[in-house]
Simulated scan of single mutants.
Amino acid sequence: MLKQKINNFKGFSAFKMLPILALVVTVYNSYFIVIEGHVGVVKRFGEAKDQQNPGLHFKIPFIETVENIEVRTRKNAEKMASSTKEQMPVTVEVSVNWTVNKEAALDLFKRYGGLDQFEQRILDPRFRSATKDTIPQFEAEQLIQDRASAINGIERRLSDEMAGFPVVVDNIQIENIVLPQKYINSIEIKQTEKNLAAAEEHKLERQRLEALRAVNTADAKAKGILKVAEAEAKSIILKGKAEAEAIEAKAKALRDNPLIVKLTEAQNWDGKLPSTIMGQGNMPIIDLRENNNRSN
């Protein structure tokens, strides 16, 4: 009996809670929140009706649902096989950033059913096509050394193909290039030879500079010696000229003043008479000292 009353009470309590639960569920399904970087596409019985910006919004419970569409920049990466201009097989990893036009998010959802479907059906095939059409235009070495040209080529091709779609594509990058190992080895050998040639050229240039420096040093030294010699020669010339002028002046003075000769002889006489005299004509030399002795 007690057990039956308890069961009746539980059944009555559950029955009273149903309206409350229904109200809670109804209230819970009457609003939605769109987070930043997204827009909310409101669907009524599966049909897209409008889009809402980030924030709190209300909808008809159980009739309308919301699909969030990201309008921030997304990144797609592809790894694909291709070939270079010289028909060398190559594997490239390429990435692209793309953004949905915020105002066109509803149209994109209506036409393609969402971002994943748009990527798979529209963006990725065109991205692969643009890459595979561009890579064969470059030789392997050019592809490695000048990725920017290949990236610009892919970007131009993809932009043309995506011109009619409500998205913006940009910032294409070639993340990695994988070439056959034989070609990589040949590049390493070529680079090694180039480095050796550059080192040898640097060595020759250094030797040339050292030789030039030695020549310049010798030339400067020779010029220095020449300058010294010229200075000495000029000094000798000036000295000789001065002596000649002095002699000439002295001779002129002697010619103009004969008494100076006598005065000079008198100043230089030691007080002794000459021991010999020269005779005139055939007169022999007379030794005065012998005559003096005899007189004594």
Results as ranks from 00 to 15, higher is better:
Asn176Ser: 14
Lys110His: 06
Leu56Asn: 04
Glu141Lys: 02
Ile122Thr: 07
Arg72Asn: 14
Lys227Trp: 14
Lys43Gly: 01
Gly153Pro: 09
Ala251Cys: 04
Glu70Gln: 11
Asp256Pro: 02
Thr91Cys: 00
Glu119Trp: 01
Ser13Gly: 06
Leu106Ala: 05
Ala242Gly: 09
Asn296Leu: 15
Glu139Ala: 03
Gln207Pro: 02
Gly46Asn: 00
Met80Cys: 06
Gly279Asn: 04
Asp256His: 01
Pro180Ile: 06
Ala220Lys: 15
Val100Lys: 03
Lys49His: 02
Lys262Pro: 03
Arg126Ser: 06
Ala233Asp: 08
Asn8Leu: 07
Glu245Trp: 01
Gly153Ile: 10
Leu115Cys: 03
Asp287Asn: 13
Asn291Thr: 07
Ala244Gly: 05
Asn53Phe: 08
Lys221Ser: 10
Gln117Ala: 15
Gln173His: 03
Gln117Ser: 15
Asp133His: 12
Val168Gln: 04
Ser95Met: 06
Arg289Ser: 13
Lys221Pro: 00
His57Ile: 05
Asn101Ile: 04
Lys221Asp: 10
Thr276Leu: 14
Asn195Gly: 00
Thr192Asp: 12
Gln87Arg: 14
Ala22Lys: 03
Leu2Phe: 03
Asn282Val: 03
Gln207Val: 12
Ile144Val: 11
His57Arg: 01
Lys234Ser: 10
Ala222Trp: 12
Gln120Gly: 07
Leu56Met: 08
Gln51Ser: 01
Ala48Glu: 15
Gly37Asp: 01
Gln145His: 11
Gln51Glu: 03
Lys75Asn: 12
Lys221Cys: 02
Ala77Asn: 09
Glu201Asp: 01
Thr192Met: 02
Phe12Asn: 15
Gly37His: 03
Leu143Glu: 00
Tyr31Arg: 13
Leu273Ser: 06
Leu196Thr: 07
Met162Asn: 07
Ile35Arg: 09
Phe138Trp: 10
Ser129Asp: 11
Glu70Pro: 08
Ile60Lys: 12
Asn292Tyr: 02
Glu193Met: 03
Val34Tyr: 06
Ala229Trp: 15
Lys250His: 05
Lys5Tyr: 15
Ser129Tyr: 14
Thr264Gln: 11
Lys110Glu: 09
Ala77Leu: 13
Thr276Ser: 08
Ile6Val: 11
Ala244Asn: 01
Ala150Pro: 03
Ile174Pro: 03
Arg126Trp: 08
Ile151Thr: 15
Gln137Lys: 04
Asn216Arg: 14
Arg206Gly: 00
Lys59Cys: 01
Lys3Trp: 13
Asn8Asp: 06
Glu47Tyr: 08
Gly240Leu: 09
Lys250Trp: 05
Lys5Met: 08
Gly224Ser: 14
Gly40Ile: 10
Leu254Met: 12
Asp116Val: 14
Glu139Gln: 09
Lys5Cys: 10
Trp98Phe: 15
Ala244Ser: 05
Tyr28Gly: 05
Phe32Leu: 11
Leu21Gln: 05
Leu209Trp: 11
Arg255Ser: 05
Thr26Arg: 07
Pro274Leu: 12
Lys241Met: 11
Asp116Gly: 11
Gly279Val: 10
Phe15Cys: 08
Pro180Trp: 09
Arg128Ser: 04
Asn282Tyr: 12
Gly46Lys: 00
Arg208Leu: 04
Arg156Gly: 03
Lys262Tyr: 09
Asn216Ile: 00
Gln145Met: 06
Gln120Phe: 03
Glu248Cys: 08
Trp269Met: 04
Ala214Val: 04
Pro180Tyr: 07
Glu175Gly: 00
Leu158Asp: 08
Ala246Val: 09
Lys3Tyr: 12
Ile187Lys: 13
Lys182Tyr: 05
Glu139Asp: 04
Gly224Trp: 15
Ser83Lys: 15
Phe118Thr: 04
Asn296Trp: 14
Val228Asp: 13
Phe15Thr: 13
